[in-house]
Amino acid sequence: MFPRLAEDTPTFFGVPHALDRKDLEGADVVIIGAPYVAGWGNQYFGVDKAEWLASCKRVRQQSIRYRTGYIQDFNLDVFENMRVVDYGDAAIPERANTEGTVDIILASQAAVEAKVNDALDAGAVPIVIGQNSPCGSFAIAKPVSEHTSGKVGMVSLDTHWDSMKYDRFSMDPRVAGSGNWKDVTYRDLKNFDPSKLVEIGERGMLEYKEIVRGFLDAGATFVSSWRLRTELGIQGTVDLLPKAFEGTEAVYAHFDLDVMGGSGPAPGDILGDLAEPIGLTDYEVIRLAHETGKLGANALSFICIPPGSPLMYRVVVYCIMYFIAGLALRKHGRAGR
């Protein structure tokens, strides 16, 4: 027995369904769905959009298989320590997932921003389950920026830097799209400081050198998956996360799960053309989510959740719960920056 958002969609872990801003009062964490897939037509990078769009529902469905919020690894019951509510999905127009006009993209972004703003206004940490930019990235970064007077840091896991100078679907500078949302973030959100960016997971030959070197020259901390495997290991990478938190008033954690490539519990090819070798493992991604929570991140979001794999949806469930566990440990003085 659990609350449902629809007949086939439980709330995340069966937590209370928040219907409006009043229901967010006293919440520590707010779960938000952002079912949006970019571009025209019915496929995204060779995978049917219906598969991508199912992620918000599928993650919630997989969460309900766990009968308790007790995490053995930390001897911690998350829900005894943190009040979590599910705020449902943002009101993204259905045609936004097949039509790439600027007006519908910006309307979809605004729908996610509205829910994220409600969560931040309530003093809670929003966790957004999305699939594409801007709805799963810039729509979270912007409210965090607007709620913060000082500098904002970022922990970003990705296969791509998403820092081109244009959105290739709309070709419009107002759109913070799949390939350029990070460029728009640092262009338009002035308190996002690139020297407080910890970027993890990119590898290989996908990027122009001017983009990567530009971030490095600005002081960003970059851990390619090659560097993680050869020089740092997961603990050395964890030890670099505080660089996003030192001297900042807020930190946004962005997890683009194409970073897992072929190293997760499901074949990388389910990502279509987005799959790349030397991906991060499920453990590495979950560990980084937990450690980012322990450090006190103010928002977390997911995009490019690999479609069609129940086990990959469980990875997202673990990331969310281990992240919240990190927040709980910090809240009760068992973690620190």
Rank of each mutant, 00 (worst) to 15 (best):
E7L: 07
D8Q: 11
P10C: 05
T11N: 00
T11A: 00
F13A: 14
G14V: 04
G14I: 03
P16A: 00
H17V: 00
A27W: 08
D28M: 08
V29T: 04
G33F: 00
A34F: 10
G39C: 11
W40Q: 03
G41Y: 03
N42T: 12
Y44F: 15
F45T: 00
L53P: 01
R58Q: 12
Q61F: 02
S63N: 12
R67E: 05
T68I: 04
D73L: 14
F74V: 07
N75S: 12
L76E: 10
L76R: 08
D77M: 03
V84Q: 08
D86H: 00
A91F: 01
I92V: 13
E94N: 07
V102S: 09
S108A: 15
A111D: 01
E113D: 06
V116S: 04
N117Y: 11
D118A: 14
G123F: 07
I129D: 00
I129F: 00
G130F: 05
G136W: 03
A139C: 14
V144F: 05
E146C: 04
S149W: 04
G150Q: 14
G150N: 13
K151E: 08
V152F: 14
D158Q: 05
H160M: 06
D162N: 10
M164D: 15
Y166D: 15
F169N: 15
S170L: 02
M171A: 05
M171P: 01
D172I: 12
D172A: 08
P173I: 06
R174H: 04
R174G: 03
V175A: 02
N180M: 03
V184K: 13
V184C: 14
T185I: 15
R187G: 13
L189G: 02
K190Y: 01
K190A: 07
F192H: 07
P194M: 07
P194A: 07
G201K: 02
E202L: 12
E202R: 11
M205Q: 10
L206V: 10
E207C: 13
E207N: 13
I211C: 12
G219F: 12
T221E: 14
T221V: 14
F222G: 00
R229Q: 15
T230D: 09
I234F: 09
G236H: 12
G236Q: 11
V238Q: 07
V238E: 13
L240V: 13
L240D: 08
A244C: 06
G247A: 03
G247P: 04
E249Y: 09
D256N: 12
D256L: 03
L257F: 11
D258M: 06
V259K: 06
M260P: 10
G262E: 15
G268T: 09
D273I: 02
D273A: 09
D273E: 09
L274Y: 09
L280W: 04
L280A: 08
T281M: 05
D282G: 12
Y283C: 03
E284C: 11
H290D: 02
E291A: 06
T292F: 03
K294D: 08
A299H: 03
P306A: 10
P306F: 05
G308V: 12
S309R: 10
M312H: 04
M312N: 04
R314D: 14
Y318N: 15
A328E: 04
H332N: 14
H332F: 15
G333E: 05
